[in-house]
Design a protein around this nucleic acid. Structure first.
Length: 809
RNA sequence: GCGGAUGUGGCGGAACUGGUAGACGCGCUGGAUUUAGGAUCCAGUGAGCUUUGCUCGUGGAGGUUCGACUCCUCUCAUCCGCACCA
């Protein structure tokens, strides 16, 4: 008989809701387990990636619950952001209405999957009860010097008409809309994430289990680089500038120096250079290029000679000073010593402008032709005065550094690639920055009692140069919280990554009306035991959240160092060879499977299809398999119930052992996130159960109960609806109230095994014999069965319960 | 260029600590059942061959070992991330 999955799912979802199975009391002192799936952007429809994420999460929730943990598994919405605003521009629907409709649609879809979420703790970033506290945290950062406003060259998306964080610029284009990104100088808000560069890097060694690629990406992004900084003097002037290098050992090879076009010293140079006109021309030309053009299209390096010279601090040599846009103003000091002999970029530039190339490192074992290419590998120093014959890189750098430090013109220096996080956005649908511009007091934080600074109602969401919030007079005009005079508000809103940098804290105390969260609760529950989400957040969200927790720790709001202990990144589900996307029209809608195959079959298939961290191709036939599997289980339980009962018989022992072995393997696989093999173990077990049921007409009551309880228990995290229904049907009890089954260590081994008989390492025979048979006996069996005489072989290798290998003759 | 992974049947993937490669599922083939289709059940399914059995086979080439998907060296391919970072 086929079971009615729709009915069963509805019934059990209501049942779990009534028994408040997912609700977590965060205050009780018990073994806590914070299991978090990344909260979604409410796009309106659940896609397969969500299904995979939330199925994995739910398997963990249910498994940990059964192991006695007080599990917190909350859900919420990353509900600020551009799509709602763009829709408002197009259709005039208010972003709040638009967003909330989508949330309610997605919430009901999520519920159909049957995952346990504590909906009592639901949060939504756009909700004023949430963003009020985002503003509160902003003010705390501001008061502690971790949020500041500054003129800075920023990435401006010409289509979204807003600035973007560096992290949101992909190959010179806007991550969202793909439009060109220009450099613009604007007064913008930043968070001082760079202050935590070193700690964010170090922390990667302290956290728990994270995918190695995510750690590597963060390391890469932080980009620590150790070297030295020293100052160069422009000859015949009192102008000095600093340069950063990791290759101080090549200092004798400096044949010119380069400033980035945006370098502050360039303004001074314009006043004195014989070449000012050309320099100005060059700078305006290079400014008009987008960052992308500057970096990749113009492979050929360009620059302009200043006509000025600097002196090499190690030997006093006079070298020309150039301005070139292959030097980036925002890395290091925005100025370099150029060593064309031993640096590829400098080499390329020197070739273009025919500048001197001097070789200062040599490796006698390799032939190096400095006229053809630069030499960047290790060797020993030449043409370097008293430093000749020192080893390149570390040794020579250290010696040269000593001299520079001695003369007070240089020092050891560590540089990071990570720059401060630009958080202002000239958009409507985000959290307003709670700051006031006062002509007396300067930038003043809104007083905490006045929070939230509510988003104003406006008629027109289109943004021009200003943020849309500037259109509301009521919003802008206010009084200074300090001195009371009339002044104006900030009109920018925050990057939505600010919202998601602390949502996991709010979940723990979502009803708190006095504070964003209670410190004690956070200390009890963080770090999050298991965080699960897509690898697309490997850098941005995870790095920002780590920064937030460290900053809030230093402010004194909590006492933990890292937000996420273990991180699991699930792989992507593709269809038709590429990523599912609406524009490609290759979206597989999960919702239809709820009705055709049921949530349990979908969950099982998505777990079974591949190791969860692998990307995988959606295969429609596959879900048929898990559906069939569930049907077979259902049928087998019916058959089992119909069996007559008798005293325990020896034939029961095999199935009992098989179940016991499956408890062992499924537990092991669950602990290692190997859900695909866990599901296959359950399928194998069902095959054995089928064989057992086909071969017997009687079974003991005890065996019946053993089979029922354990199969339902093992199935429960994966297919919770059906296992709950089966258990209730045959025992009148609720499986969710029972602990995870234990296995009997003594009953894992089969009484017999298939011996493999090899001759010279090749399999020749097999025979089923008793487990634990000794080598002597096995040799006798081989002699008897296969006419193998021990004395004919030089060597015999015997591995108990596995193989015997006869070697040589 | 740098960093991280991944390569096993027609497909998704298994394989414990080095011990029968291909579990489990999809697909396919044959059979049973059915008026038919679907569903279900049973059997088969890495390749080749001179088919009681033999040979080859885990991207490729070597190596260690009685024995290698597994360990070592080199190499090729694919995917992802970063990339003029001084």
């Amino acid at each position: 008989m086929v079971f009615n999955h729709t009915e069963i799912e509805k019934k059990w979802q209501e049942q779990w809701n009534n028994q408040q199975l997912a609700s977590c009391n965060v205050s009780i002192k018990k073994d806590n387990f914070y299991n978090l799936c990344m909260y979604p952007y409410p796009s309106g429809d659940l896609h397969m990636g969500h299904i995979r994420n939330y199925t994995i999460g739910d398997v963990i929730t249910r498994y940990k619950q059964k192991n006695g943990f007080n599990v917190l598994s909350p859900m919420g919405w990353d509900s600020f952001g551009l799509p709602a605003e763009n829709a408002a521009i197009k259709t005039g629907i208010h972003p709040k209405k638009f967003t909330e409709e989508r949330i309610s649609n997605m919430r009901s879809q999520i519920k159909r999957l049957g995952s346990l979420y504590d909906w009592n703790k639901e949060v939504a970033a756009h909700d004023q009860d949430y963003y009020r506290w985002t503003q509160y945290l902003f003010i705390k950062l501001f008061e502690n010097g971790l949020a500041y406003k500054e003129d800075a060259p920023v990435n401006w998306c010409t289509s979204c008409k807003t600035v973007l964080a560096n992290e949101q610029v992909v190959e010179g284009c806007c991550e969202r809309c793909d439009a060109n990104v220009q450099q613009k100088n604007l007064n913008q808000w930043f968070f001082k994430i760079s202050e935590y560069s070193e700690e964010l890097l170090q922390g990667l060694d302290e956290i728990g289990d994270w995918p190695s690629n995510v750690k590597a990406m963060q390391e890469n992004w932080i980009g620590k680089s150790q070297g030295a900084e020293f100052s160069l003097n422009i000859l015949n002037t009192d102008l000095n500038f600093e340069v950063f290098t990791t290759r101080l050992d090549t200092l004798y090879g400096m044949t010119f120096a380069v400033l980035a076009p945006e370098h502050p010293t360039v303004n001074e140079i314009l006043k004195i250079s014989p070449n000012s006109k050309e320099i100005e021309k060059y700078i305006s030309k290079s400014k008009s290029k987008s960052e992308f053009e500057r970096m990749s299209i113009s492979k050929k390096k360009t620059g302009i000679d200043t006509g000025l010279f600097v002196s090499n601090p190690i030997n006093g040599e006079k070298v020309p000073l150039w301005i070139a846009d292959y030097v980036l103003v925002n890395y290091g000091t925005g100025a370099i010593m150029a060593v064309p002999g031993h640096d590829e970029r400098d080499y390329e530039f020197a070739k273009v402008y025919d500048l001197d190339i001097v070789q200062v490192i040599i490796d006698e074992r390799k032939s190096v032709n400095i006229d053809k290419e630069p030499y960047v590998d290790k060797g020993i120093l030449i043409n370097s005065g008293e430093y000749n014959n020192l080893k390149s890189h570390d040794e020579a750098s250290e010696e040269i550094l000593k001299q520079l430090t001695g003369n007070d013109i240089g020092e050891k220096k560590t540089t990071f690639r990570l720059r401060d996080w630009l958080i202002s956005r000239q958009r409507y649908w985000g959290c307003p920055i709670p700051v006031i511009n006062c002509s007396n007091c300067g930038l003043v934080a809104e007083s905490l009692d006045n929070l939230p600074v509510l988003l104003p109602e406006i008629d027109d969401y289109k943004n021009s140069e200003d943020s849309p919030l500037a259109k509301s007079k009521d919003f802008i005009n206010t009084n200074c919280p300090k001195c009371g005079i009339q002044c104006t508000r900030e009109t920018d809103t925050m990057d939505t990554f600010v919202d998601s940098s602390w949502y996991f804290l709010r979940f723990l105390d979502s009803d708190n009306t006095n504070l964003p969260f209670n410190k004690e609760i956070i200390n009890d529950w963080l770090p999050i035991n298991q965080y699960i989400g897509g690898v697309e957040h490997a850098i941005l969200h995870l790095l920002y959240s780590r920064f937030f927790v460290k900053a809030l720790r230093d402010i004194g709001m909590l006492d933990v160092n890292e937000p996420f202990h273990n991180l699991f990144s699930q792989g992507m589900i593709n269809f038709g060879g590429s990523k599912m996307s609406k524009s490609k029209g290759n979206v597989v809608d999960p919702e239809s499977y709820f009705s055709t195959h049921g949530a349990d079959a979908l969950r099982l298939y998505i777990l079974f299809m591949a190791p969860p961290s692998d990307g995988v191709e959606w295969n429609d036939g596959g879900i048929e398999g898990t559906k069939r599997f569930l049907n077979k289980i259902w049928d087998n339980f019916e058959k089992l119930a119909l069996l007559e009962t008798n005293e325990q018989h020896e034939s029961d022992l095999d199935i009992i052992r098989k179940i016991n072995q499956t408890i062992f393997t499924v537990t092991k696989h669950l602990d290692k996130f190997e859900f695909n093999t866990a599901v296959s173990d359950l399928m194998k077990l069902n095959i054995e159960l089928t064989k057992f049921l086909n071969s017997t007409i009687k079974v003991s009551k005890k065996t019946k109960e053993y089979i029922t309880f354990n199969i339902c228990s093992l199935l429960y995290p994966f297919a919770p609806h059906m296992s709950s229904e089966l258990f209730y049907l045959y025992t009148n009890q609720n499986i969710s109230e029972f602990s995870w089954p234990n296995f009997d260590k003594e009953n894992l081994t089969n009484p017999t095994y298939e011996l493999v008989v090899q001759i010279n390492g090749k399999k020749k025979h097999t025979k089923i014999i008793n487990t634990g048979t000794s080598q002597d006996e096995v040799e006798k069996i081989c002699a008897l069965e296969f006419e193998i005489e021990t004395k004919n072989y030089k060597n015999i290798i015997f591995v108990e319960d596995k193989i015997i290998n006869f070697i040589g003759q």
